[in-house]
Every structure is written in structure tokens, then in C-alpha cells.
């Protein structure tokens, strides 16, 4: 797996949240490229180089996927399931970043192999803190397995 370009895949349907996330990243001074997809299907297309992303190198996977759960077309848990079911993406770090702290969502998320679960706080300052810690961990400290994609 190549992730030299340090891409972060943000799966987020709401432009406000996208903008706030960008602002938070900017605030934390992360320079990684943020690729945004609007729904679950697009996320899968991107990851598996299908649909409008056909021709993309499948082995060129993002460093981390920030996955919202409530998405149009294919929901976040389904996307996670597909990611974990595929050999090429099963080691991909997926952080669930969503509005809900519902027990059932957390249990389902971790059961399907989410690496982390973060609730987006209403308070923007807290959100910035969360993004900072997230970025520090997944973009700087964490070592990703490279054996997944042949």
C-alpha cells in the first residue's frame, strides 16, 4: 500500500461539516490533502477505483478514512463493512467521526472493525481539540501496515 501522499479521505455529506472539518484541520495546521466524498457509494468508488474514480490506482490508499455514519445511498456502517471485507482495504485505518454517541452505533462500528470512534462535539473548540488529537495519532504516530495491497 502506498500512502506517500498522506491523503485523508473524508466521507461527509454535509458541506457545513466539511467546511468545519477543513477549518479544524487548518487550525491544527495539518497539511495533508483532504479528499471529500459526499456519500457511501462515492467513498467505495474512490477506494476501489470504480465509477467516476475508475482509473485511480487502487493501491494508492488514503492514510486514514474519516467516516460519517449517516450517509445517503450507502450508509457508513455498510461502507465500513465493504472496506473490511475487501483484501485491499481491510487494513485501512477507519475513524468513525459522527454526530451520534448512540450505544448501538458504537457497538456496531467497533464490531465491523472501526479503528476509532469519535463523536463530533457541538462546541467547535472541542472539535478542534478532537481533530488535533486525531491527526496527531493517525497521521503522525500511527504506523500503517503496508502488506495489504499487492
Amino acid at each position: 500500500m502506498k500512502n506517500s501522499n498522506h491523503i485523508i479521505l473524508l466521507v461527509e455529506d454535509h458541506p457545513d461539516d466539511e467546511e468545519l472539518t477543513r477549518l479544524a484541520f487548518k487550525e491544527c495546521k495539518f497539511a495533508n490533502e483532504l479528499v471529500v466524498v459526499r456519500d457511501g457509494q462515492e467513498a467505495l468508488d474512490y477506494l476501489f477505483a470504480t465509477g467516476k474514480y475508475s482509473g485511480r490506482d487502487v493501491c494508492d490508499q488514503p492514510q486514514v478514512v474519516l467516516l460519517d455514519l449517516k450517509l445517503p445511498k450507502v450508509d457508513g456502517l455498510e461502507v465500513l463493512h465493504r472496506i473490511r471485507a475487501d483484501e485491499r482495504t481491510k487494513c485501512l485505518p477507519v475513524v468513525i467521526l459522527t454526530s451520534s454517541k448512540q450505544e448501538q452505533d458504537m457497538v456496531a462500528g467497533y464490531s465491523l472493525g472501526a479503528n476509532s470512534y469519535i463523536q463530533k462535539p457541538v462546541d467547535f473548540n472541542q472539535f478542534i481539540d478532537a481533530v488535533r488529537q486525531l491527526g496527531l495519532y493517525w497521521l503522525v504516530l500511527n504506523e500503517t501496515a503496508v502488506t495489504c495491497c499487492k
Binding site: 454535509h14 457545513d16 461539516d17 468545519l20 459522527t98 454526530s99 448512540q102 457541538v122
Partner: peptide, 9 residues
């Protein structure tokens, strides 16, 4: 849980 919080954020 999901939708009401989103606009608040």
C-alpha cells in the same frame, strides 16, 4: 442523535 446536532455544530 445525528441530525439535530449537526446544525448546532
Amino acid at each position: 442523535a445525528h441530525d439535530l446536532r449537526s446544525p448546532l455544530r
